[in-house]
Amino acid sequence: MRWILPLAVIVLLLVYPFVVNSFWLVQIGGRTLGFGTIVLSLVFLTAYTGMLSLAQMTVAGVAGYATAYFTAPTGGVGLLLPWPVALVLALALATLAGLLIGLVAVRTRGIYTLMITLAVAMAFYYLTLQNYDIFNGFTGFNNVEPPVILGLDLGANLPFYYMSVVLAASCYLGVRHVVRTPFGLALQGVRDEPDRLRALGFNVPLLRVLAFGLAGFIAGIGGILNVWLNASISPGSVALNPVIDVLMAGVLGGIGHPAGAYVGAFVFTIVDNFAIDFIARERFNTLIGLVFLAIVLFSPDGLTGLVRRAWTRGTGWARRDRGGAPKTDDIGK
């Protein structure tokens, strides 16, 4: 029984390109996978280490900007490198950014972590806006395209979609793997009782910083997918709105389980694309805000929690693999 849901998801992901048009393939499917991977980095932090962050889009932006800088110099800014080198550098820089943000945030909890990571995010936004030597200021970078490997253009719709599936699935399964290793168990110890974990011989601040580094790596993969999807990156990509979108999508999907990241990203992408059709643009943020509020009020563990509870009730399954959904009042701590 337990393989039915994963199998259904795999089949759905594989046949999806053959039942939808190119808009749904790239703008909904591709975006859900890329953005969802950035959300996954937040869900990983929240669900397994009990830490919040508003800087995950910023870390993704670091990877996106690095990819652009090293593969698509614009207006004389940038340094063309072979794409494998560029991508390794982009991921290394994202991981480093994650580690540094972790160092800054490591002594804070709950709402204070949110505030300090938001401060980092806004500092980075203004840096990209005002710096022309590295970030090319307001303009940013254009024509950021995925590579062509052995004649296969990864920028074409179908290859891009499948590449996104493979990378997102690797990140998702990677998180599921890591949380079962001794390192991952220790992280859950940080989430549940940091004092106890220290008394058992673990270095709690180190674990917190490493978790931010790993989250940075994951966000970096999402950031690379994102910059390719948009074919461009500019300060708007790391501004307040996208930064908050990550948290919104995370809460929407449920910050207690990695699958919630993609559920949240999907719903968010749908609303983001279609709300404009039936609601005036200036009302859009109000709508998103209301949906957000409803989720927080009625299903603190997000849509995934809602589905899981319906599923559990329907099948009478025991609660297995809860991933230890954090209590919502952790957010206020």
Binding site: P182, F183, Q188, L200, G201, L207
Partner: peptide
Amino acid sequence: VFGGMTVRDNLYVAVRGATGPRLAI
């Protein structure tokens, strides 16, 4: 105790804390 983990995982974290390596991934 680590409420979100099973008894076995609680004990295992203790075993690893005492002996290491603690960051095995």
